[in-house]
Amino acid sequence: MGEHLHKAVQALQERFNATVSEFRDEVSVFLLPDQIVEACKALRDEFEFEMLEDETAVDYWPEETPRFHIVYHIYSYKHNERICLRVPLNGNSPSIPTIEGVYPNANWYEREVWDMFGIHYEGHSDLRRILMPHDWEGHPLRKDYPLGHEEIMFSFNFDEINARKRYATE
């Protein structure tokens, strides 16, 4: 861990009582949902982490009980260092404050996370689906979302599927 990054991580630890894990020189700081906006503000304003590189989510269902982790990768141009913030979220319709006010490009990332994982962002200015059609039901990257929609035709089940398949007409 670089010196500057160490300072930033230490500050987060002290202010937010956060736990830190390090794996192959990558630092993850675990935070609570109501701390994330303050943490991002501190990183941006005090520690020169200017850029939100990525914001995404992970679904650990059914292995772990805080089902979702929201992951923020934040980068400092000046110090060439990256920090990863993680926020575990429980429940099937979780919500978390938006960090759009700190990093404006979080807008589309959060729309994507909403679209794919169904995580609600409080205070987001425009929380719509971004990838899936607007009338889509469900959130496809959740682990309990069913895989295929239709059975695939092979030669052994062609006749059976062909009999009920609805072909398009003129």
Binding site: P140, G148, H149, E150, I152, K165, Y167, A168
Partner: peptide, 20 residues
């Protein structure tokens, strides 16, 4: 023709469901 390697929520398995 039939969905190919894709079997998921995003890909139409065979365009014959959409156009003849």
């Amino acid at each position: 023709s039939c969905g190919g390697v894709f079997n998921n929520y995003a890909i139409v398995p065979g365009v014959d469901e959409v156009v003849p």
